[in-house]
Simulated scan of single mutants.
Amino acid sequence: MPHARLPRTLLTTLLLAVFTLLAMPASAADNGQASASDPMPRVRVVTSEGAFVLQLRPDVAPETVQNFLDYVQAGFYDGTVFHRVIPGFMIQGGGFTADLGRKSTNAPIRNEATRTLPNLRGTIAMARTNDPDSATSQFFINLVNNDFLNAGVRGAGYAVFGKVVDGMGVVDAIAKVETGVTSGMSDVPKTPVVIEKATVLKASD
Rank of each mutant, 00 (worst) to 15 (best):
A23D: 11
L22T: 11
T9C: 04
L100N: 10
A135S: 14
F68K: 13
D133C: 12
F82M: 05
V65Y: 12
T191M: 12
T20A: 14
N67M: 01
Q66C: 04
V43Q: 07
N130Y: 14
F139E: 11
F82T: 00
G79L: 00
V72I: 08
S183P: 04
G95P: 03
T116N: 06
R44K: 08
K190S: 13
A4K: 09
G180L: 06
I141K: 09
N142M: 03
D205P: 11
R115I: 01
P2S: 10
L11P: 00
V164A: 07
L56A: 03
M40A: 06
S137L: 01
A51S: 08
F140P: 07
L149E: 05
S186E: 14
I141P: 07
V53T: 05
K163F: 03
T20M: 12
T80R: 06
D166G: 06
V188T: 14
G88Q: 10
S183E: 15
M1V: 02
F139G: 09
T12N: 07
V85G: 09
V144Q: 11
V81Y: 08
T179C: 11
A26W: 11
S186I: 13
V60W: 13
T123Y: 12
T116D: 07
D166E: 12
V181D: 11
V188R: 15
F161E: 03
V46R: 07
V43F: 02
G50R: 08
T47A: 04
E63F: 09
F82L: 04
T123A: 10
S137H: 03
G184W: 13
G32T: 04
R57I: 00
T47C: 02
D205V: 03
N146A: 09
P41F: 01
A135R: 13
R84F: 02
F82I: 00
A74W: 02
T13C: 04
Q92C: 04
G101R: 13
M185V: 10
Y71L: 01
P7A: 09
A198D: 14
V177R: 15
L16E: 09
P2V: 02
V170D: 08
T179F: 13
G101N: 12
F96W: 10
F140A: 09
R128Q: 14
A34E: 00
A51R: 04
E178W: 04
L54W: 08
A29F: 00
R110W: 02
R154Q: 06
P39Q: 01
R8H: 03
Y158L: 04
S183D: 15
V193Q: 15
A61W: 12
N130V: 05
R102V: 08
L100Y: 06
V46G: 00
A29K: 01
A135I: 02
R154C: 01
E63H: 14
V45G: 04
P189R: 14
D78H: 03
Q92I: 00
S186N: 14
V170P: 07
S134Q: 12
L69Y: 02
V177K: 14
G155R: 09
L117D: 02
N67H: 10
L6S: 07
G95W: 03
M126S: 15
E196R: 15
S204N: 15
V81S: 05
A23S: 13
A113M: 09
A156S: 08
N67Y: 02
A74Q: 06
L21A: 13
G79F: 01
L22D: 09
L117T: 05
K197V: 02
P7V: 05
L69V: 02
S104I: 05
D187H: 15
P108M: 12
T191C: 12
